[in-house]
């Protein structure tokens, strides 16, 4: 469980933007927080999973995928901005992600 600093926030944003720019072969400048992952970038769930794995390794996170899945059902992610926010919540709360709603 990590406190989200400005530095972490910027780092997560940079990783997410760079990841989608490379995976989806678009200029990073074309991506903003309102970019639709599916409609604008043709992204898919495997990319989402790969990003989770990147952050799990980078921040040594203790989180089960199904916890993220349950959270995502209640809080669907469609844009890059929402995805960055979710990754920050995952880093902050790890396996206690669902407790945010309680």
């Amino acid at each position: 469980m990590a406190a989200i600093t400005e530095s972490i926030r910027n780092e997560v944003k940079e990783i997410v933007y760079s990841f989608f720019a490379e995976e989806c072969e678009v200029e990073i400048a074309q991506i903003n927080e309102n970019t639709s992952i599916i409609n604008d970038l043709d992204g898919d769930s495997l990319m989402f999973l790969e990003l989770i794995e990147i952050f799990k390794k980078k921040y040594n996170l203790d989180i089960e995928l199904k916890v993220i899945g349950k959270y995502a059902v209640k809080h669907p992610v469609t844009t890059i901005g929402q995805l960055v926010d979710m990754q920050l919540l995952i880093i902050e709360h790890e396996n206690r992600l669902m407790e945010i709603d309680q």
Partner: peptide, 8 residues
């Protein structure tokens, strides 16, 4: 599976 937490 979705209710159980499957991502996709």
């Amino acid at each position: 599976a979705t209710a159980e937490g499957a991502l996709h």
